[in-house]
Simulated scan of single mutants.
Amino acid sequence: MSPIFCPKCGGINTSPATLPLLFCRDCQAKFGHDYHELVADTRQIIFNTYQKAIASQNLTFTKTAAGATIEGPFLCYYPDLPEIYIDQLQWQQLLEDFYQLYVLNWKSNYQSANTSENSDTAFGWDLKIIIENQEPLISKGQGLYPPYWTALMDLFTRIGLPNISKPLGQNFLQLQTQIQAQ
């Protein structure tokens, strides 16, 4: 069985407290929730990756009567990609997998010690979860990523979306170089 990482500090010194909660012995954080109600109440997930002043990409997942739509644009990969439609079962599975990444427990701000918030060179991201009758949950970062970042990118690519992970930061630089050369 693979270790469960703490979504706050990334430590693997975790143990069950009162299920479905877990406890991190390193940072003393409790995490994990019964997310099943959230699956029914989640209205929208907005995810952006960017390099300031150069380029950005976004994914917007919106609940519909038939399931959900996923919209881009996916600028560096598929600039003309239309909306993607998924049915209710696919939407439910996507949300279950999404919430199993402890996104509700991610820190509000992941900031690399080597990167200032005003830096134009750092690759950044933000995640906004809109749940019915709740304030939006927002997490963001620049130059630093939550422990479940790779698993989130894997989830997106598993449903056929482009990989908009950290390596895209290098693609932004290549894209900018190509634009300047033209």
Rank of each mutant, 00 (worst) to 15 (best):
Y85N: 12
G10F: 10
E132H: 14
L104T: 06
P79W: 07
T62C: 09
F23T: 02
T14G: 01
L22K: 06
R43L: 15
A181D: 05
D126A: 05
E135W: 14
I12R: 08
Q57E: 10
E132N: 10
H33C: 08
T62F: 11
F61V: 08
L94P: 02
L21A: 13
I130S: 09
K8F: 12
T177M: 12
F31C: 01
L175D: 06
A17T: 06
L81Y: 13
D97Q: 14
A65R: 14
K63D: 04
T69M: 01
D126I: 04
V103K: 01
T18F: 12
I130C: 11
Q44D: 07
L94H: 07
T49Y: 12
T42L: 11
T64N: 06
S2N: 09
N171V: 15
Y78T: 04
C24A: 04
K166Q: 11
L94I: 07
I84T: 05
C76H: 07
W106L: 07
S116C: 11
Y145Q: 07
P167V: 06
A66R: 15
K52C: 04
L38G: 01
W91Y: 15
T157W: 09
E83C: 09
F123V: 10
Q57T: 01
N58Q: 14
K140T: 05
Q170D: 15
Q111F: 12
A151K: 08
D154V: 04
G32T: 00
Q111K: 14
W91S: 01
K107S: 02
G169A: 03
K128P: 02
F5M: 09
L59G: 01
G32Q: 00
N163T: 02
A66T: 11
N58Y: 12
N48E: 04
D87T: 02
S15Y: 13
D120S: 14
K8H: 13
L95H: 00
D80I: 06
Q178Y: 14
K8P: 03
I130N: 09
Y99H: 03
M1W: 12
I54E: 03
N114I: 10
N171Y: 14
E117M: 11
R158G: 09
V39N: 07
Y77W: 15
Q100R: 13
